[in-house]
Design a protein around this nucleic acid. Sequence first.
DNA 1: CAAATAGCGTGAGTCTTGCTCATGTTAATC
DNA 2: GATTAACATGAGCAAGACTCACGCTATTTG
Lengths: 218, 218
Amino acid sequence: MTNVSGGTLRRRPAQRRSLERVERMLDECARLLDEVGYEALTTKEVARRAEVPIGTFYQFFPDKQGLVRALAIRNLEAFLGRITARLSEVRLSEWTEMVDLTIDEFVAMKRSTPGFAVVDFGGVFATPGGPILKGTDRMLDAALENNAIVADRLRTIVVEVLGAPIGPELDRVLFVAVEAADAVLKLAFRSLPDGDPELIAECKHLVRRYLSAHLPQE
Amino acid sequence: MTNVSGGTLRRRPAQRRSLERVERMLDECARLLDEVGYEALTTKEVARRAEVPIGTFYQFFPDKQGLVRALAIRNLEAFLGRITARLSEVRLSEWTEMVDLTIDEFVAMKRSTPGFAVVDFGGVFATPGGPILKGTDRMLDAALENNAIVADRLRTIVVEVLGAPIGPELDRVLFVAVEAADAVLKLAFRSLPDGDPELIAECKHLVRRYLSAHLPQE
DNA sequence: CAAATAGCGTGAGTCTTGCTCATGTTAATC
DNA sequence: GATTAACATGAGCAAGACTCACGCTATTTG
């Protein structure tokens, strides 16, 4: 699996114990996100639940956002892993199948993976804009980058499976598709805890309609 | 103009002076959002810039989120106003024109209205999910509701202009379209400060393709 | 017109939270 | 066994969200 993680951690856990601790903190972070949401989540509480002193928490995570960002990256890697696994099982004949497969897998993770409903790949914040002074929330960039990574991975697959024309146009199209799908699926899960089935169907519809203009028809 | 504002304010400003103060606080909130983003925005700084004591701030706004929510609602009302104004000027023959008109107006506001790039109609947070304990961030619901209001308004227009079949299906379709468009436009403005023109074009494309399956062709 | 009353305005101060850092503890190296 | 380096810890600090007791100004009342 490609390691996507960039400078997210302050110190990379070397020993077994530290590694387990970091994993535990991420787990508790995810569960807390489901319970109280991002704003109400406190680093102290995450540390307490993971049975890790607050000082140790800050040995590994630069701040609250770093924690959530790390979780988002873990989610992303899990998602990419599941996608590639499913793709090696199923031999798909049409690209439309890939749309369904991707969305289904995303939906499955929304349902089963703690915290995924809240952060998925990182789109919790929206703080772009002007000269950021202090606090320096670059989380949004992370979200942007992460969805870009999803798009990039999908592009590789699309090009492999059916010889789609490579180029900046394809990049853009897939990027837009991923972003739009993400938004509609968020909507589906806001309406119903397990995701409104009609909205999920509509999401597939939306993506297929859009892509059919850009990908070769079969 | 329909008054959309629900219980956003603690006390509704009755006298002229209070009303100006509230307006000033919203203005400064918007400008600060552009400068430092949501996380780094402080109520003290908003109050300071608006030349209003912090105590008075809390007379009107319940909390930081309430402030931003109020701004989002003001934005929404301004947007709906502009849309209806443009629609009364231009007599549109095809529904595709309405897509362009709506998106163009949204883009124009993203460029000109302070703070609109950050909050537009309220999608700053993402904190749905389980039993919210304290802090009770219901901002996301507000965002949801606000986009629903946009969709609803557009539906009224669509039904008026061309006798589109009314029903829950049309509601859902428009809701999805608004949500997807919102996401792609956010993306466009993340890539470039003034909005990537190619992504804006792609957004129109996406919406038209999607709607063409649900609205009567001309 | 003065007194009583009711609402409005105010900012010092409280409480909570993110985060640090000096000190203690364990493991590695010589 | 001594020295050094890496890791662990939680009391404490800084900063920000939000309150509340008091003063002030308008409005009503005898």
